[in-house]
Simulated assay, not measured.
Amino acid sequence: MHFLTEELSFPNTNESSPDGLLAIGGDLSTERLLLAYENGIFPWFEDGDPIMWWSPRERMVLFLEELIVSHSMRNVINKDVFQVTFNKAFREVIQHCQSVKREGQYGTWITDEMIESYCKLNKLGKAMSVEVWQNNTLVGGLYGVDMFPVFCGESMFSKVSNASKMAFISLVNYLKSNQYNLLDCQIYNDHLDSLGCREIPREDFLSYLR
């Protein structure tokens, strides 16, 4: 594991630990974040901890044509229960992702500094949000970093049933229509698996990024 200095660089991703931890330290400057994502690296740490940079050996991704939409979710979509927008409330989405309570999780890995850093990426056109509304109230959404032709999903939230799924499906449809070829979901979880995501070797993921 490496300790970063002020120099704008990262070690080779092959040097990450078995759990994917590559480096500690550095900063969340726009330049460093973009360099990280260009090389398949992302920050993930809890408030009060040093910045930790990760590059898992197995990467959870969605090949866009493999999206699974359940029959019940198709019914939700057909009923027009939600309205979906893009990049209309980026800061609000990331703030909701920060504050939402998650099972088995006591704190948040989205720090206030991280919010400011990703809002800067958004203003530069390098980060995007999807908003899901119900009766003019923001009830779900997600955000991520745009590394065309790969979109790197970061976090999503839901205040009512199916809202985050709606955001995810809407994102995939957007990516398909704009010639992206992969959605990066970083690390395995059962919910992502149920949507059609799967793990691929880091080397394969990096080849898509390049």
Rank of each mutant, 00 (worst) to 15 (best):
P50R: 08
S16A: 04
K126I: 08
N136G: 13
M1F: 05
P43I: 02
Q83M: 05
W54E: 00
K101D: 04
F82Q: 04
G141S: 07
L171T: 08
W54V: 00
Q95H: 10
K79V: 01
D184S: 05
L209H: 04
M166C: 06
G125C: 08
V69Q: 08
R202W: 04
M128C: 13
Q105C: 10
G107D: 09
M52Y: 11
T30R: 03
V132R: 12
G153P: 06
T13E: 00
F3M: 05
F148A: 12
F205K: 03
S16H: 01
N136Q: 13
S72R: 06
R57D: 15
I115F: 13
V139G: 06
M114S: 07
T13D: 00
F86N: 07
T137S: 15
R32F: 02
E199S: 14
S155C: 13
P149Q: 07
W44N: 04
M1W: 01
S170G: 07
V145C: 05
E103G: 12
A163V: 03
H191Q: 05
S177A: 08
G153W: 08
R91P: 04
P50A: 07
K120L: 11
P56L: 03
V69E: 06
N189W: 02
P56T: 01
A127Q: 10
F82W: 12
L206W: 03
R91L: 08
Q83C: 07
R32P: 01
I115L: 14
R198T: 15
F157C: 11
L206C: 07
L8R: 05
D27G: 07
I169Y: 09
M114K: 10
L21N: 01
L64H: 06
Q95K: 14
K101C: 05
F90T: 04
E103R: 14
G25V: 00
F82D: 05
L171G: 03
L4K: 03
H96T: 12
K120V: 09
Y174G: 11
S17G: 02
D80M: 14
L124N: 11
G40F: 00
F45H: 08
D204H: 06
S55K: 00
G144C: 10
S161A: 03
P43F: 01
T30W: 03
C119G: 15
H2C: 01
S16N: 01
V100Q: 14
S207C: 12
F151D: 11
E6Q: 07
K159Y: 10
F45D: 00
G196I: 09
V132M: 11
E15K: 00
Q179F: 04
K165Y: 07
V132S: 11
V145A: 10
H2D: 02
R91D: 12
E203H: 13
M52A: 12
G26E: 02
E154A: 14
N135M: 09
D27K: 01
E103H: 14
L171M: 07
P50Q: 04
F63I: 15
E199Y: 08
L67Y: 13
E66Q: 15
S177D: 06
C119Q: 15
S207L: 13
E199P: 13
L62D: 13
G107H: 08
N12L: 04
T111Q: 10
D112W: 15
F151V: 05
W44I: 03
G144Q: 11
E65Q: 15
M1T: 00
E203Q: 10
K123F: 14
